[in-house]
Write a protein that binds this DNA or RNA. Structure first.
Lengths: 128, 128
DNA sequence: AGGTGTCAACGAAGCTCTTCGTAGTTGATG
DNA sequence: CATCAACTACGAAGAGCTTCGTTGACACCT
């Protein structure tokens, strides 16, 4: 029920979602100021209105300046985009994507530790 | 020179590129038959014509049925899409993406071994 | 020569995304 | 109350993507 498959967010929508994830509930003005791309105020407004229709964000209209909140958790969207990419260009193999990702840039020691932990738990799982 | 930044391939374009990567040089008919989506022949043709204009593919017109070849190596496109995703939704951290990817599905022992190797070489690098 | 099947080319239509101008509303201020 | 600033709502335009119908070229077969 109500587990409607949301379509992939567009680029502009992702930019706005990122702001909402970062700042939490925000007005259009706040989002617009945070995004330092060249887009105009009404452009951001319009996009956020459309996102409301799509169900990507929620709007609280009790204040004069409506307050928007993301309805899609960051993690979910990340997962959605990752599995999408895995299916479309990595032949369904998440590990291939992971290898590609790691080969691009540098990774902090903390992240390396996390990766090692992840890897070891996967290895343990594979033994059964 | 000539390192023109190609735009991100669209979904339909990616589908076609996948076929060309897999099969190598192919005619429109072959691509169309391989793609088992519902799209019509002329649709595929048109898209491949546009891809030619964009420089995504090359066309050999010496035969009646033109033969198309990808001009963008699979690896490059994968790298492009991965760094794009990392920047747009993982705050520039490839490791975050890798973790997300690995947490989604299962990974074969061979891939686990590759990952371990990758990880160890990264760890070694980090010590300097 | 006529008919048939395969092919590229073209153009148009429909759709989505993005952009922004304009208008109307509301609240605060002098 | 008139004005000004901040805000939403609306509509339309422009671009890119996807789709496909139609046309014309060409080759092969009878």
């Amino acid at each position: 029920m109500s587990r409607d498959k949301l379509p992939r967010p567009t680029d502009a929508e992702l930019g706005i979602l990122r702001v909402l994830w970062e700042r939490g509930a925000s007005t259009v003005r706040e989002v617009h100021e945070t995004l330092q791309d060249g887009s105009g105020y009404t452009t951001v407004l319009k996009t956020m209105q459309i996102m409301t229709e799509k169900g990507l964000v929620m709007r609280d209209e009790s204040q004069r300046a409506h307050v928007y909140t993301s309805r899609v958790p960051r993690e979910n969207t990340q997962r959605q985009l990752v599995t999408d990419l895995v299916d479309r260009v990595f032949g369904g193999s998440p590990a291939r994507l992971a290898l590609q990702a790691l080969s691009t840039k540098k990774t902090s020691p903390e992240e390396l530790a996390e990766l090692r932990q992840m890897l070891e738990s996967l290895e343990k799982e594979a033994e059964s």
